[in-house]
């Protein structure tokens, strides 16, 4: 298997709902279990300036949905000024026919 790029830094050119949905699955697991040392290290090394607006919004939606945003931003200074609450200008679809069940996603113009 070739050397893997951290998913949050992948080139998203040409991505559609399936790829962003998959990124959401990865980020969801990463932040849901952020107390795990390996996952905590990945988060602590995240550089938001290397991420797309879509990736940052997904992180914001996940953290807001689980009520963890403030605690995570206190723990990881690198995420403090990432713009995690800024809605996307262009809607991001994670499914072609989204269910829109989760308010924090909808608020950031993400349709899951």
């Amino acid at each position: 298997m070739a050397k893997r790029i951290p998913p949050h830094y992948l080139d998203q050119h040409g991505w559609g709902p399936d790829e962003f949905n998959s990124l959401n699955a990865y980020l969801n697991r990463l932040f849901l279990y952020e107390s795990d040392p390996e996952k905590s290290r990945v988060i602590a090394q995240m550089d938001p300036s290397r991420m797309s607006r879509e990736t940052i919004a997904l992180i914001g939606a996940i953290l807001t949905q689980y009520g963890k945003r403030q605690a995570v931003q206190e723990k990881y200074p690198n995420l403090r000024y990432a713009g995690l609450t800024v809605p996307l200008e262009i809607p991001l679809y994670l499914n072609e026919q989204p269910l829109d069940l989760f308010p924090a996603y909808r608020e950031l113009n993400i349709h899951y």
Binding site: Q65, L99, F102
Partner: peptide, 17 residues
């Protein structure tokens, strides 16, 4: 609802659907 959001894994809901 805030407690529910914190406890309910979005992936579990989507998988269930």
């Amino acid at each position: 609802p805030e407690v529910l959001a914190a406890e309910l894994r979005t992936q579990d809901v989507m998988d269930t659907v």
